[in-house]
């Protein structure tokens, strides 16, 4: 093969806008988009029941926040896998790549729109804890809470973009989806803070952006000032941006490889 230039040399925001707008329209007509939300109240019930009946009501915030983060990650895995494979199976992948808008930014835009699910997910978890267990989670630092929520959603979309790149070459997404859910819940400190882990495992977990998200979200519910907020936001942003850069570059690289191999279409 001859050596050629990278196809998307600049960050194309029109691809992002197109993807975001498209996904918000598509989500209105696709009820299966909301399947990942179903788990949120059930996980809230499960975790709240454990905390209540073990007498650890001090950990109730964990039980409310964890289902929201789990929904986000589940949705990210689901959408990132389906986005490539569904387009390929329906003969759209080549058409999307034949258009001038940046495909990697289109994917990121669509995944960002998918992350809008974090709001109803949090609402469902919050309402379940409130209505069933009469626990109405306080938010003492709403700025930190909202900031952490927005950055977490963006970082999740970035991580999902990185995952999506693998699906350009891999025809099956299901195995990756099934493999990557619980390890990330664990390493992300979603239910058990990573500070409780052995030192070596905590060090690894700190590379997972969700560990910083979970700490910030939980800290925003306590009356005490949020410790290490700057550090938390910085790490969340850094890890999110790293995932995004890796994702965009990987998609470009994988697309190039698929064009060389001739594996873009599924016939």
């Amino acid at each position: 093969m001859m050596r050629r230039n990278f196809e998307y040399s600049t960050v194309d925001l029109s691809g992002f806008g197109t993807g975001f707008r498209f996904q918000t329209v598509a989500m209105r007509s696709q009820s299966d988009t909301y399947f990942s939300l179903i788990t949120s109240p059930f996980f809230a019930l499960l975790y709240m029941a454990i905390m209540e009946y073990s007498g650890r009501t001090d950990l109730n915030t964990h039980a409310v926040i964890a289902p929201m983060l789990m929904t986000l990650w589940t949705a990210a895995l689901s959408f990132s896998g389906e986005m490539i494979s569904e387009n390929r199976e329906n003969g759209r992948l080549e058409l999307l790549l034949a258009a001038p808008a940046s495909f990697p930014m289109l994917v990121f835009g669509r995944l960002c729109a998918c992350m809008l699910l974090s709001l109803p997910s949090f609402g469902m978890s919050y309402m379940t804890a409130g209505l069933v267990f009469d626990y109405w989670m306080p938010i003492h630092h709403p700025g930190v809470f909202v900031g952490a929520l927005v950055l977490t959603a963006l970082a999740t979309a970035a991580a999902a973009t990185a995952l999506a790149s693998a699906f350009v070459l891999t025809l099956g997404a299901r195995i990756v989806q099934n493999t990557l859910s619980f390890p990330v819940y664990l390493l992300g400190g979603i239910i058990v803070p990573v500070s409780m882990f052995p030192g070596w495992l905590e060090a690894i977990s700190r590379l997972v952006y969700l560990s910083w998200s979970a700490d910030l979200l939980r800290a925003s519910t306590t009356p005490e000032p949020v410790a290490n907020a700057v550090m938390g936001f910085s790490m969340l942003s850094l890890l999110g941006l790293s995932a995004l850069a890796f994702g965009l570059l990987s998609i470009v690289w994988f697309l190039r490889r698929a064009k060389e191999l001739g594996t873009l279409s599924k016939e």
Binding site: S14, G17, T18, R21, F22, V25, A26, S29, Q30, N90, G91, R92, L95, L96, A99, P100, A101, L106
Partner: peptide, 22 residues
């Protein structure tokens, strides 16, 4: 007949593709 977003309307489909072309 593949290559379209079946659950979207024809107008939404064309609007999306027009956006893809800037």
């Amino acid at each position: 007949d593949r290559g379209l977003y079946n659950r979207l309307t024809s107008k939404q489909n064309l609007d999306f593709w027009a956006s893809m072309y800037g």
